[in-house]
Amino acid sequence: MWLSSSEGEALSLSLSVAARSVVLSLPLAILLAWVLTRRRFLGHSLLDAFVHLPLVLPPVVVGYLLLLLFGTRGPIGSWLERVLGVELIFTRNGAALATAVMSFPLMVRAMRISLENVDRGLEEAARTLGAGAIDRFATITLPLMLPGILAGAITAFSAALGEFGAVITFVSNIPGETRTLPLALYTALQTPGGDTAAARLACISLALGLGGLLLSEWFARRVRLLLGR
């Protein structure tokens, strides 16, 4: 293996953090995509804007806000630690939370597009066939928005691998715990003689990103073919 142990560690940590972040945000993203597409209510635009906020805010600001909310003395962070014993600061779970928040808008966006393409007439048909609300969602809506869910998950996973600003602000840069690929790359650049390591890490990031996008496209094509569209 041409990766040093610390670089390999950064790669596997990145994959672990990205996977956690996707698992964490998937159910909430599906729910929000459904609410934003199918429901009209007071504060709809505000909620929509709030979901998209991480796209336009500097990542450092997101990290800082997370510190305020989820820090040991923050309102949510102290509760999590006291009741569930979950520590977020300086841990990989914290890194996962930061990347989840940052990639959340991408995930919701992909799901909304596919949900908007789901023919509501099909849900009506299921209704006349005796399917209640949850039944309809599980057997008709969810399978038909699957391309969007997969695309959203893969895009979010790829983006999570590369999240830098929010992670370093929220959980710092601790080798083996929060030093993901981009943080390792940044550290290598700061270290004298770290150029080749930085180049290797950049190549890995590039390959992972490209692979993710291609995989997402391939999935979408497969599903379209399966549905005959």
Partner: peptide, 20 residues
Amino acid sequence: VPPERRRIGYVFQDARLFPH
């Protein structure tokens, strides 16, 4: 009575078969 409990079959003009 909500449609799912009316037990009324409905054949739509555009069939509306489930594509998946």
